[in-house]
């Protein structure tokens, strides 16, 4: 069984060290702010540490907190780009810190909290409250009159429809599309790409019985899809790769059609 002549796979090469003989010293410039002390204005603080192989900003920030400044505030939960907790501006780009590898960063990196959301402290922002508010305003749940029958077989659904719903449902509410959106920055009630995408998820779902008119009232407004001016920072920054531009265009067309139909029936 010891057949040594087996072709080695690509990953068998020794790429673990990423050649750390000359480990870089990274400068991490972090915005510090504590809302409990409003008299101290937000400022940037520099931290230095040595880069390690496979290092992500998750590792960096925890190291800084444990070894240099225990008061440093930031949010991580899953550290695997699943939960959406760690959205921040990394050198200006809204992205997830947990999946940002330091090897892709320059020697000096600036970390800022996501704009739009309420600041809790340093890099920690209240995305949860913002998204909950939008979910409530857009009534993001299945609206149906049917009552669940525990003894019945499940209602059938075409798998393609299920996949389409899932494609929109994949949003992890990290807020990168919101923080990067110019409109969201100046219009407090704008639901942003994430909000529109969330509504699209329910529009695609045959289980939801809301009418076109109801959706029109919900998102066919300046706080909804018509608030979007098409800058597409959302589409460029979505860390899970949801085709936000397609979703926005889909809802926009759908709303135009509803308005047209509504006009005809008048």
């Amino acid at each position: 069984m010891e057949n040594r002549a087996v072709l080695l796979p690509q990953t068998n090469r020794d790429d673990w060290g990423e050649n750390m003989m000359h480990a870089r010293t990274l400068t991490i410039r972090i915005m510090r702010y504590n809302p409990a002390e409003p008299e101290t204005k937000p400022y940037l603080q520099d931290f230095q540490l040595t880069e390690e192989p496979g290092m992500t900003l998750f590792v960096v920030l925890n190291k800084l907190r444990e070894e240099q400044d225990p008061t440093l505030r930031f949010d991580f939960v899953c550290r695997a780009a699943i939960c959406g907790s760690c959205g921040m501006l990394v050198n200006g780009k809204p992205t997830l810190a947990c999946k940002t590898l330091t090897k892709d960063l320059p020697e000096t990196t600036t970390l800022l909290p996501l704009p739009v959301f309420k600041l809790i402290g340093d890099l920690s922002v209240d995305t949860g409250v913002w998204f909950r508010d939008v979910s409530l305003r857009t009534e993001s749940w299945i609206h149906t009159d049917t009552v669940f029958d525990p003894d019945a077989e499940e209602e059938r659904m075409d798998n393609d429809v299920a996949q389409k719903i899932y494609e929109a449902e994949r949003c992890i509410e990290c807020g990168c599309c919101i923080g990067g959106c110019a409109t969201a920055n100046i219009k407090p009630n704008f639901i942003g790409a994430a909000g529109v995408n969330r509504v699209a998820r329910f529009m695609l779902d045959p289980r939801d019985q809301r009418t076109d008119r109801e959706y029109l009232e919900l998102v066919g407004t300046d706080d909804g899809v018509f608030g979007c001016v098409g800058l597409m920072a959302c589409d460029d920054n979505c860390p899970v790769g949801i085709p936000l531009r397609d979703q926005l265009a889909y809802v926009r067309r759908k709303m135009a059609q509803s308005a047209w139909n509504l006009g005809k029936t008048k």
């Binding site: 699943i82 939960c83 907790s85 992890i172």
Partner: peptide
């Protein structure tokens, strides 16, 4: 501890 949708169930 965290916004509900960030819970580990999501993983």
């Amino acid at each position: 501890l965290v916004p509900p949708r960030r819970s580990h169930s999501s993983a």
